[in-house]
Amino acid sequence: MTGELPGPAPEERPHPSGRRNKQGIRIDPQAEAEPEIRREVLSALVDHEPGVLAEVSGLFARRQFNIESLTVGPTATDGLARMTIVVEETGPGVEQVKRQLRKLVPVHAVRELDAATERELALIKVGDDDPAGVAAVAEMYGGEAVEAGPEVVTVELTGTESEIDAAVEAFERFGVREVARTGTAALAGGTEFTAHETHDNE
């Protein structure tokens, strides 16, 4: 085919030796390490209206952000809801998630929580062959049976995500039939506001 242009061929040109990694950061090839994946809890204050959940979850899906859980519920302010989103991303990935979230029109504020109070609620339905054993495990994890028999007991418990993981594992020996978990809800520690109109630019 035609269309060639004059000039030195690729191998006749000088080429810089530097390189960037997948995140576009200039690197020392000897020292390159895969960036670490972090678990981060984000809180977003959003309009409490139809379509907002679809908008947020659609954003995560199309940008291939890894989320572990997402919960949403009303706040003390009419018309506003709070979303707690647990993401598993690299540092730059977490920054991208926050910035992309802030661009959505129904999103008022987004914040990453470090020292947060985190809780998740779980309902665990197990066999009732050993009611005393179930009660003991439930007590150990601060839970209680909320519905009993015939054949099954449903235990309710709250805790951090890892506490719930541990509890579900402990209940395995009674035969876990079904589990329903809410995902993590979180508030900032102390007098700090979690995600507030004024946090938008953090």
């Binding site: 960037r20 995140q23 576009g24 950061i25 200039r26 730059p92 920054e95 991208q96 910035r99 992309q100 802030r102 661009k103």
Partner: peptide, 9 residues
């Protein structure tokens, strides 16, 4: 702001 460091640091 979401374009910052999205593709190139």
């Amino acid at each position: 702001a979401s374009e910052i460091s999205k593709n190139v640091h």
